[in-house]
Structures are given as structure tokens and as C-alpha cells.
């Protein structure tokens, strides 16, 4: 097939005009007297005015269908008669069961569960499986979106690690050898990764240390934060809100056998005024707001 398809021949202007003439409706249609008359008329017309524009052929289409049918009429075979439709010339009977086959014998499992459970099957339950969600119209969009997402994640990671990147890039540092700084950077990087993946705390937080050290550290962080806030305030910068560590509001855990009211210290039970009020006040004025509270 391939060699038959060559480069298309260049068509000269004359050829083009000629061919268009040839495919004109008049010339293709039957060469009868009517055609001659038309040609003559046209020639006369063209002699007087500009040449006519010839429209593309339409009548040809009807002609094409005819020859396909004709040869069949010539053959003497009359086709399969309706009586022995299933019988070929060899006497073999052919039965077609595809039409009578039942489409599906078993319902889906979910349907089985819905129908065969102890509950009466609900009337409104849909029997047909839900049509699948229409496939995403443009697949390219999806891939682009995914790429964007990936890039986004990478960018965020980069921003997070940019502090380490400046002097101690992880790849660089590992290659240069086991210097202390490079190792530190690597550990910090790992720590960041782990934290971003959801670790509760950094691996660098020291679990146990002398109390004075810890106090010192926490005091230093507090002081640093305070300083930062003060400076920000002076410069008119709005900072994030200070997060206050809340004390647990739950009931105080009293020891076993301890009195349920007051403060027991040094062998004496001290009752505050509030405690006293709680003990002595009549229930009436207390339960004004709370209805139905049992006493």
C-alpha cells in the first residue's frame, strides 16, 4: 500500500480548470440532448458575461448505490428459504441460544445481603447498581494537577529546609565526609523530616537532665520570647497570640480517705468561706438556676 501512495502531483492551473469542467453536473449527467442544449446556452452566456462558477457535484452520490445491487439480480441463487432457516446445505442444524440466554442469574452480593437479611427489604431500595461516576473529562488536566501538587510539596519541603541548605546541603555534606557539622546538618534534616511526617517531638529534645539546667533552658526561652514580644510591640509589629498552657480544670484528686471538702494540713481541716457557704447554704437559693438537680 505504502509505495502506491506517492507525492501528490502538482496540478497546473489549466488542469485544474479542466478537471473542474469535467466534474460539472452537466457533463457527468447523461449525455442527452438536454445536456447539449445546456452547454450551448452556457457558451452563449459566457460569451456575453464572465465565465460561470461551477458548483461541486452532488448528483453523483445517487449513482454510486446502483451498481452494488445489480449483480445480485443476475445470479440464480435465491437465498435461504424461510422454512429451513436453521438448515444449511450439509443438513446440519444450527441453533442459536445466545438470544434466549438469561442475562444474569445472580444478584450482587450487596443485594443479597439487603434482601436476605432478617429485616424486611425496604421498598425504596435501589435495585440497579449505581452508575459509575462519569470519567474525568480531560485526563491531561489530571496529570497537570498531579504535577502541580508534587511540585508544591517539594517547594514546601525546600522552604522548610532552606535554613540548613545555605551552608550544609545534605547531599553535599554527606559527600564531603564525616565532619561534625555535616553530621549535625544531616541529623537536623532527618529531624525535620520526621516531624513533618507527624512525630510528636524533636529527636533533639533531651529527656533527662539536671533540674537546674532545664529550668535555665526554659527560663532562657521564656526570656527570649518576652524580649521578642517587647521589641515587636515597640516597633508596632503584631505578633501571633501567646499560647497559654492551661491548667487542668478537672476535679482535684484527693487521696483515699481524705476529707472531700476543705484543706487538710498539719492535722487540721481548714474550711474556706466558699466551702462553708457550700455546706451551710440552704438548697433553695442555690438551686434557683438549676432545675431538677437532686440533693
Amino acid at each position: 500500500m505504502a509505495p502506491a501512495l506517492g507525492k501528490r502531483k502538482r496540478i497546473t492551473r489549466e488542469e485544474l480548470e479542466q478537471s473542474s469542467r469535467a466534474s460539472s453536473p452537466c457533463s457527468v449527467s447523461q449525455n442527452s440532448d438536454g445536456e447539449d442544449m445546456q452547454a450551448r446556452f452556457r457558451r452563449a452566456f459566457e460569451a456575453k458575461f464572465a465565465p460561470l462558477k461551477i458548483e461541486p457535484v452532488r448528483a453523483e452520490i445517487q449513482k454510486v448505490e446502483e451498481p452494488a445491487e445489480e449483480p445480485e439480480e443476475d445470479t440464480d441463487w435465491s437465498g435461504i428459504s424461510s422454512e429451513d432457516e436453521n438448515e444449511t446445505s450439509n443438513g446440519v442444524q444450527v441453533f442459536d441460544h445466545t438470544a434466549t440466554e438469561l442475562p444474569r442469574t445472580k444478584g450482587s452480593k450487596s443485594e443479597y445481603r439487603a434482601f436476605m437479611s432478617a429485616k424486611p427489604p425496604s421498598l425504596a431500595a435501589t435495585t440497579t447498581a449505581k452508575p459509575k461516576a462519569a470519567p474525568k473529562y480531560v485526563k491531561e488536566d489530571d496529570t497537570v494537577e498531579a504535577a502541580h501538587m508534587k511540585n508544591d510539596l517539594e517547594l514546601q519541603k525546600l522552604l522548610r529546609e532552606s535554613t540548613l541548605l545555605s551552608s550544609n546541603a545534605p547531599t553535599y555534606s554527606t559527600r564531603t565526609g564525616n565532619t561534625r557539622e555535616s553530621n549535625d546538618a544531616r541529623h537536623k534534616l532527618t529531624d525535620l523530616h520526621v516531624q513533618s511526617l507527624g512525630a510528636k517531638k524533636s529527636i533533639f529534645t533531651q529527656k533527662s537532665m539536671p533540674m537546674s539546667h532545664r529550668k535555665g533552658i526554659s527560663a532562657k526561652t521564656k526570656m527570649r520570647d518576652y524580649k521578642r514580644r517587647v521589641e515587636a510591640k515597640e516597633n508596632g509589629i503584631t505578633l501571633e497570640k501567646e499560647q497559654k498552657v492551661r491548667k487542668s480544670v478537672g476535679k482535684r484528686d484527693r487521696g483515699v480517705g481524705a476529707p472531700s471538702v476543705g484543706k487538710f494540713k498539719g492535722g487540721t481541716l481548714t474550711l474556706s468561706k466558699k466551702d462553708l457557704r457550700g455546706l451551710t447554704s440552704s438548697a433553695g437559693d442555690k438551686s434557683k438556676g438549676k432545675k431538677g438537680r437532686r440533693r
Binding site: F115, A118, K119, P120, P121, S122, L123
Partner: peptide, 20 residues
């Protein structure tokens, strides 16, 4: 279970009905 109990639903009786 499948032909009589579902009819109770049209009378507003539908919750926790089971026939095991």
C-alpha cells in the same frame, strides 16, 4: 418478611422490625 412486613412502612411503622 418480604411481602407483608414491608407494607407496615406505609403506615409509618418501619423501625426495628426483624424476622429471623
Amino acid at each position: 418478611r418480604t411481602a407483608i412486613l414491608p407494607l407496615y412502612k406505609s403506615f409509618g411503622i418501619e423501625r426495628s422490625i426483624e424476622l429471623r
